[in-house]
Design a protein around this nucleic acid. Sequence first.
DNA 1: AGCATCGGTAAGCTAATGCTAACGTAAGTG
DNA 2: CACTTACGTTAGCATTAGCTTACCGATGCT
Lengths: 102, 102
Amino acid sequence: MAYESALAALSDPTRRLVFERVLTAPQAVGAIAEGLPVSRPAVSQHLKVLKDAGLISERREGTRRLYVANPQALGELRAAIEAMWREALGGMAAQIEKEQEK
Amino acid sequence: MAYESALAALSDPTRRLVFERVLTAPQAVGAIAEGLPVSRPAVSQHLKVLKDAGLISERREGTRRLYVANPQALGELRAAIEAMWREALGGMAAQIEKEQEK
DNA sequence: AGCATCGGTAAGCTAATGCTAACGTAAGTG
DNA sequence: CACTTACGTTAGCATTAGCTTACCGATGCT
């Protein structure tokens, strides 16, 4: 529904790194933070933003929390971008046609 | 190539408004700024960001400058998002399969 | 040339953003 | 119950981002 928040969430480079790590399989926060250029709390904050945007979901397992990407939100973003893309294509086609008439 | 900059450029709400105005047809800066909640210089700055991201192109016509959306950059962004989407879908499918084995 | 129109640019301010360090908390373990 | 593990949260800080106002350059017209 709100592709805007997904767009904003993915605009940050390190947050994209975080997101890409949970793209294919659930990951614990510690595992996500490992190898990233920021501290673990920073990762937690990024995860919160991603979750608020609906891009990931959380599942608790004992003392750990596993995060996974939510394909649906990504699909909505994809659809929104694609709609704009088609609009731009259509506009360009109309523009060329106008040029031909001349 | 650099879908990241397109993503960052489109993450700002008013910049999205600017972009959507040049999506289907070329527009002059004054026409774009009209009706927007920000000043014309602000629009100019947004246009610069969009242009640097490759999302729009500029054409001079007398004293005016016409800006249009560039479908290609939008297409690249679409492809990048779609790739991530497919990854997420695949990951979820694998996850479900694992669940079934249990 | 003089003037008006159309826009890009610079300076400066404010609000938001990302980060770290320190602390708080809940679930397992002895 | 004490202790550890695994995270979230808060406070505070530095940086960035978007906006406005004022100014400057280029083009067109008379």
